[in-house]
């Protein structure tokens, strides 16, 4: 049967920075084709398609809180597969190979991680579950 796609509304303007992304204006309606854990969602509109940041979209049918996981304060072990230097105060700076714990997997692709006493946001696409081959 036909695949029913969820419609989302853009809450802000988004300027694309690569050819696979899709620019948005606040209020644009898009259908979501694929939701990536990285926080990039593949969307289509009337005559365009491309990747869009999940945090710029809100569901037309009310908040889909069911998709958002609860924080797990015990933490899930992950390894940093790519270093990142914090840009904002609430982000973490980590080096490749460091072991951290993920305590909250957010749909926008910025996960809350813990390293010793410090916590902050880190891009999920630069993390890999401990013990998994890359």
């Amino acid at each position: 049967g036909p695949i029913v796609l969820q419609t989302y509304r853009s809450i802000a303007d988004f300027a694309k920075s690569s050819t696979t992304e899709m620019a948005l204006q606040a209020g644009d309606l898009v259908d979501v084709v694929e939701k990536g854990e990285s926080g990039w969602w593949f969307c289509q509109a009337k005559n365009k398609r491309g990747w869009v940041p999940a945090s710029y979209l809100e569901p037309m049918d009310g908040p889909d809180e069911s998709e958002e996981q609860e924080p797990n304060y015990e933490g899930e072990p992950f390894v940093v597969i790519r270093g990142y230097t914090a840009v904002e105060d609430d982000e973490m700076t980590l080096q490749e190979g460091e072991a951290i714990e993920v305590i909250h997997k957010l749909l926008d692709g910025w996960w809350v991680v813990r390293k010793e006493e410090a916590t902050g946001y880190y891009p999920s696409m630069y993390l890999q579950k401990s013990g998994q081959a890359q």
Partner: peptide, 22 residues
Amino acid sequence: TIKQPPTQPPPRPPAEARRKQP
């Protein structure tokens, strides 16, 4: 086939989204 997603992390949520967070 769906193109590969961008290799850069997505931007942090816009101010509009942050205001909605509790």
